[in-house]
Simulated scan of single mutants.
Amino acid sequence: MSAQTILFELDREHVKLDNLLKLTGVCDSGGAGKHLVASGAVTVDGEPESRKTRKLRAGQVVRVGGIEIRVVDIGG
Rank of each mutant, 00 (worst) to 15 (best):
V42A: 05
L10E: 06
Q60G: 05
I69T: 00
S50P: 08
V72M: 02
E49R: 06
G40Y: 07
M1F: 09
Q4A: 14
H14C: 08
R54N: 03
H14P: 02
V71F: 03
T43H: 06
G30Q: 03
G30T: 01
L10T: 03
V42L: 04
R12M: 05
R51I: 12
T53P: 00
S50E: 14
G33S: 03
L7R: 15
R57Q: 13
V64K: 03
R54V: 02
V71P: 01
V62Q: 02
L20C: 07
G30I: 01
V72S: 01
A58R: 04
I74M: 09
L7Y: 12
R63I: 07
V61C: 08
T43Q: 11
V15G: 03
D73L: 13
T24W: 07
I6H: 00
L7I: 11
G33Y: 02
L56K: 00
V37M: 03
E49V: 05
G25W: 07
K16R: 15
E49Q: 13
A38S: 15
G65N: 07
E47R: 15
L23R: 11
A38Q: 15
T53C: 06
K22W: 05
G33D: 03
G46K: 07
E9C: 09
P48R: 14
I74R: 14
G25Y: 05
G46W: 10
D11A: 14
T24R: 09
G75Q: 14
N19G: 10
I69G: 00
A3F: 11
G66D: 13
T5I: 12
K22S: 00
K55I: 04
V42I: 11
K16P: 06
Q4T: 14
L10S: 08
K22C: 01
E13L: 08
K34I: 11
N19F: 12
E49K: 05
V42S: 03
L23E: 14
T43A: 09
Q60I: 05
D18N: 14
I67Q: 12
K34N: 11
L17N: 02
I69W: 00
C27Q: 07
K34T: 12
G40W: 10
G59N: 09
R54S: 01
R51G: 09
I67W: 04
R51K: 13
A58N: 09
D28V: 10
H14D: 10
H35C: 14
